[in-house]
Design a protein around this nucleic acid. Structure first.
Lengths: 330, 330
DNA sequence: GTGAAAGCGCTAACAT
DNA sequence: ATGTTAGCGCTTTCAC
């Protein structure tokens, strides 16, 4: 910058003003500075600036996802990126893969980079350790699932109500034996979704049959074998609700292989590309990921801008995309 | 850091040594410093460090993709993230959406953040402007398509050979009227893929029928209407090759709506989730995205480490996943 | 092995 | 409207 000042015959501060587009600089000097910038191939150094800048903002946020390559995470990423870009903020991303150790490592790393804030799909089950980080000035917004032992802004979907609506529709068609396959209840969303299933049964006064439920699978083959067992029973279910997209995928495959895909109803949670092109088209309860991401970004930016309001817990409605597989009668 | 030094009764430099895990520090002092760090909630500031550090490395790279939420970009992102993580490097991402203006803006922004290097799926058709940036010390690796007017390391797939193989297999089944729908030839990969189609025809001495080809569509409805026109002709094609996944999707829908999905062969380029579950299962030519990403990351890290070797053009083989839709006979 | 001083590239506060 | 000076938090160099 000093070189540019010398080359243009001005002072360091004037160069700074021009480079930052501040108003109130003589156009003649602006032109001189710009010529020198070009000549010397000067590139402004943003990181050096944030060192001294008031508030020390780096105009960078962190986004910690389950896995940047899964469709849910990727869509969330895009939504956050769009909100961030409109404010000139860059996004550092990372995949946690459900690993709580990695969550801590990545958060520490991003704090060391002095990100202005973090949007996190949490992988750990205790976030007390963030209290210190927040005191040091880093803001946190949780998305998809809330933090534990740590109060913060949170964006979730109506997991329970979404499942309840879909299962109720199955009951409306006359189904009484509805299987439920989901993730382990230790996962917040899985517990919520299962709760919605149970609530729908309770409302319809259908007793819970634990043999029709399974929560938590080690891998795809375990899903498959449970389903095969379920379908080969005397008194097999007439409908299946799958609480997560990999489980839905396996269910589609198994139903096909048993040639039951037109006989047994199926509704899944989470979007699935091409679901409407399958035969039968697959009914799904989906989340409005774009809205969730932009709300999370907005909450974070408000905190970064100094909002001192109480933490918010925003809940975004799910959508029930009813399709042929959800309309099969018992 | 000075506060920590005071608290621990040591000097600033000793704190720096401890915080950076340098060897040759008295364990007693290390313990003292660590106690003070805890007590004062000290957090190391990485960005300040890179200001003075030799070589000025920020341990950050930029990754510019078509759109972080599309499956190809997302998979590439994950692959690069994994390579970067193993070297303690963070990744700043951005979506270009085919906008060359945005490409320049984002690259300028990332250079201003002093990323050590960039991996780019280019959206512009002239990269001469990067020459200056490279001279300033930023390294570039291009992926999926090469840069124009700018020599650099590049990772691409065997677009042409992949299509050629698939079209040749159609010819082997007896197809002579094979339609080709792809992106505009201004896009490198689209041109390559179309070239593979033409080559397969030439080898088999099948004359090109321009009525069976269309390159470049404004939107999905244009794809749809072209296909509908194609299929309602007297002398309609017996097979279709689609050079990109959105076109493949539309083709699947149109073939179904005309009830021709079991009569006309279809092979598409790029992976499509659930493609094997459709009826018929869809044959696809796919890229090994994971390998492409890790090669790109490796090339970039080598440059960052100072490699002065000539620029490399690495080509990763595609895979032909033959399935029912590709086996339909004329 | 440890510490003091200089300075990375920039912005803030205060002149002029 | 423009310039000067101090200092952000750290690493480097070099002296002890």
């Amino acid at each position: 910058m000093l070189d540019v000042a010398k080359e243009s015959g001005t002072s360091l501060k004037t160069v700074s003003r021009v480079v930052n587009g501040e108003s109130g600089v003589n156009p003649v000097l602006v032109a001189k500075v710009e010529r020198a910038v070009k000549k010397l191939h000067y590139r402004h150094n943003l990181t050096a600036g944030s060192l001294r800048r008031l508030g020390g903002k780096t105009k960078t946020i962190g986004l910690l996802l389950e896995n940047v390559s899964n469709p849910f995470s990727a869509a969330l990423h895009r939504s956050v990126e769009d909100s961030a870009r409109s404010r000139g903020i860059d996004v550092l991303t990372g995949s946690l893969d459900g690993d709580s150790q990695r969550e801590r490592e990545l958060i520490n790393g991003l704090v060391a980079r002095r990100v202005d804030g973090l949007i996190v799909v949490p992988s750990s089950d205790d976030h007390k350790y963030l209290t210190t980080e927040r005191r040091a000035g880093t803001h946190f917004v949780f998305i998809d699932r809330p933090a534990l032992n740590f109060n913060s802004d949170t964006v979730t979907a109506t997991n329970s109500a979404g499942v309840e609506e879909a299962v109720t529709s199955l009951i409306g068609l006359g189904h009484k034996r509805i299987a439920y396959l989901g993730d382990a209840e230790s996962i917040y969303t899985a517990k919520e979704r299962h709760g919605g299933y149970r609530k729908a049964l309770r409302t319809a006064k259908i007793p819970v049959d634990k043999d029709l439920e399974k929560l938590g699978f080690a891998d795809e083959s375990e899903i498959e074998s449970f389903l095969i067992g379920l379908l080969s029973r005397q008194n097999r279910p007439t409908a299946i609700f799958t609480g997560q997209n990999i489980i839905t995928l396996v269910a589609i495959r198994v139903l096909r292989s048993k040639n039951l895909h037109h006989k047994i109803a199926l509704i899944g949670f989470d979007d699935l590309p091409l679901a409407d092109l399958l035969d039968p088209a697959i009914a799904l309860v989906t989340q409005d990921i774009h809205v969730m991401g932009s709300i999370a970004a907005q909450l974070l930016f408000d905190r970064i801008d100094g909002a001192k309001t109480p933490f918010e817990e925003r809940v975004v409605p799910t959508t029930f995309a009813q399709r042929a597989s959800g309309l099969i009668k018992p």
